[in-house]
Design a protein around this nucleic acid. Structure first.
Length: 215
DNA sequence: GGTTTGATTATCT
DNA sequence: GATAATCAAACCT
């Protein structure tokens, strides 16, 4: 296994600038950091506007809650890698932010396409509006062209087809926090972060299977 | 080997 | 706002 003698996994002293050593092993902290960053494929770049934190084995809503499986193995790997999975016929993608052995990850739920819009449109159904281009996890991966083929890629490696580029919030932008979309477990935990007022952020929808809201 | 569930989306009322 | 569609992984028998 790749492990520096003491240094955090993912930090590359001799590596290219932009290594993902700024990620926090805490999913919530990383979620906040990822807002305003960019996710890029060779064709399309999106600015991340909405994310959800998944706290690994401590989080009932996480795929990693019940331990490591073939499906979620990437989450237990080193930080800065891409965890992809399919559900309901769609692909979703997460950024792993914890070192090997710990399964904290951040789901990228929505973004604003800032480059390669034409390609993104061509991958989506005709007629979709700009705000819906990469709105929702499945739509986002579709617009980017991310598939299960990209499972486990190193987002910090220049050679990767999917890369993460650090970005900042614009002046005046605020981060809102709330419960996650569609989870039936821990449905009230405020683990979802988005840029307040951004039109590309998806609407909140509670899981039909979640117990009634705790008040 | 069959059944259930789900971090969803599109479509209809 | 509610409902159906749809695919794969996990779970159960």
């Amino acid at each position: 296994m790749l492990m520096d003698a003491g240094g955090p996994v993912g930090s590359r002293p001799d590596g290219p600038v932009g290594a993902c050593d700024w990620l926090s092993p805490d999913a919530r902290a990383s979620a906040r950091l990822l807002l305003g960053c960019f996710l890029a494929t060779p064709d399309v770049t999106v600015r991340i506007t909405e994310v959800e934190a998944y706290a690994g084995t401590d989080d009932p809503a996480s795929h990693a809650y019940k331990g490591q499986t073939a499906r979620n193995a990437v989450m237990f790997g080193p930080a800065g890698h891409l965890y992809t999975y399919t559900m309901h016929g769609h692909t979703c993608c997460n950024v792993v932010c914890s070192p090997a052995g710990v399964a904290q990850a951040v789901l990228i739920r929505a973004g604003e396409v800032v480059d390669g819009a034409e390609v993104a449109y061509s991958r989506r159904r005709p007629g979709v509006s700009a705000t819906h281009l990469a709105r929702g996890p499945g739509n986002l991966t579709r617009a980017l062209g991310v598939t299960m083929d990209h499972s486990g890629v190193d987002l910090c490696d220049r050679g990767s087809e999917v890369r993460l580029v650090r970005g900042e919030l614009r002046a005046g932008e605020l981060v809102a926090v709330g419960p996650r979309v569609g989870v039936s477990q821990a449905a009230d935990d405020p683990m979802r972060f988005w840029i307040e007022g951004d039109p590309t952020v998806s609407a909140y929808r509670r899981s039909p299977r979640a117990p009634k809201p705790s008040r």
